[in-house]
Design a protein around this nucleic acid. Structure first.
Lengths: 233, 233
DNA sequence: GGGATCAAAAAGTCAGACTTATTTGTCACA
DNA sequence: TGTGACAAATAAGTCTGACTTTTTGATCCC
């Protein structure tokens, strides 16, 4: 799924990144490059490259005579896919999942509306295929098969929106949906109403009915919010 | 505004990054670390650090025996603030501005709805203050003063939403609004209707009327879309 | 023609010496 | 006593050169 840490530098990142993302080093903590290099048993050049990457994600700040200081979470590049993965892998998982679900609830309806305008015939066909796949796997504990088609469905919508920034959220949505199936409680078959909504969205997009596609998708995302007990007064 | 390239490594990035983001090196182009180091007159270590950062942004991919290859735009980390700045600074500016405006149209209404629920008294006061500032600078070619309050207004909304990912879009929105005032055609005073809408949003948030805040903000963003001739069949 | 083998190329890694900026502490002077 | 300048310590920043490893592509043999 994610890029396996290529090279020593990548290995260091995959250890240090999640640790910082999980809040193991409180904001303001100071690390020293030399000490880290020793701890990970790599040369300073390798460690410096890793620090540079963490710095580009705004997780840390490197200053002369001071060291490498951890930045407060509010300054992190929280849209960096790697940061998202690291946070999902650690103690910050619940909050990250909530943030992402709220983000989905904003993006996906608009994306569906745009998809209704701009989707190609091929994309409409894909969408219908995905929806049918979801229906086919919606009963009898075929959760994995259902997930695959669910992810594909939302990916097609985001891509068909024609907006490059929406399209890049495909991986994030995939991660959220996979998380819901794998980590969270998900013993029962998916909600039949949700399945129906997906079929209807596919149909609305095919028909070019932007308002209807947007509205139906909003209902889907409201369901996702309710699953996490977001909403309420 | 942005971080001025600290160190040699930062200087290299500020030259190479924009060049790649502007599409000067077509996808698949191969660069060699040693050659780049010579070109920028820095050591290989410095160049390697720069390449690592570009790689973490998914702008390039470094492979042994091959070199540093430029990735297709569809794979870039388009939410990285630095990438956004680089794209806004170059030939990709129009498309980047459109993408961001569409993104705003999805995010901000939802953020405003959440702000109506979660904004503190202080944030409501700030919001009203910003709206009044916009009114005060809405006539007589006080574009700079208007911009400052406009940016502040949208920042408060995003922060008050309580969603960390929305909050991080403050800088992006600021960049879009500033671009509209400085680069695009903006000789006349702002649309009075837009000013009124901002005041009404502030009032709706203060009153805790989420649906109204969301709807009014949607009208604002529709206006932004129309300015760029987005919409239409 | 196809598969194994070998050589070249470029990134990856390391070690060590040196430079530079920044902080902190000290000391003299007002 | 407070304040300013100056000096020392510290950790990042930079450079260089040698070496390793992976991958590719060409060659050679069957």
């Amino acid at each position: 799924m994610s890029t396996p840490g290529r090279g020593l530098h990548g290995h260091v990142l995959e250890t240090l990144g999640p640790a910082i993302a999980a809040g193991e080093y409180p904001p303001g903590s100071v690390l020293r490059t030399d000490e880290l290099a020793q701890r990970f048993d790599v040369s300073r050049s390798v460690m410096r490259e890793a620090v540079r990457v963490l710095e580009s994600m705004h997780l840390v700040e490197s200053r002369r005579r001071v060291g490498v200081t951890v930045r407060p979470k509010a300054e992190w590049n929280v849209y960096d896919p790697q940061v998202i993965r690291w946070r999902l892998a650690g103690a910050d998982r619940p909050q990250q999942l909530r943030s992402l679900t709220v983000l989905r609830s904003a993006i996906e309806p608009v994306a569906a509306g745009l998809a209704a305008k701009y989707a190609t015939a091929g994309q409409c066909a894909e969408l219908t295929e995905c929806a049918l796949g979801m229906v086919a796997h919606s009963r009898g504990h075929q959760l994995e098969g259902y997930l695959i088609h669910d992810v594909a469905f939302h990916r097609v919508i985001l891509n068909a929106s024609g907006n490059e920034m929406f399209a890049r959220l495909g991986d994030v949505v995939a991660e959220v949906l996979a998380g819901r199936t794998h980590h969270e409680v998900m013993f029962e078959d998916p909600d039949p109403a949700a399945v129906t909504l997906h079929v209807q969205v596919a149909e609305a997009v095919r028909a070019g009915d932007a308002a209807r596609a947007e509205h139906l998708t909003r209902e889907i995302t409201v369901g996702a919010l309710q699953e996490l007990d977001i909403l309420a007064p």
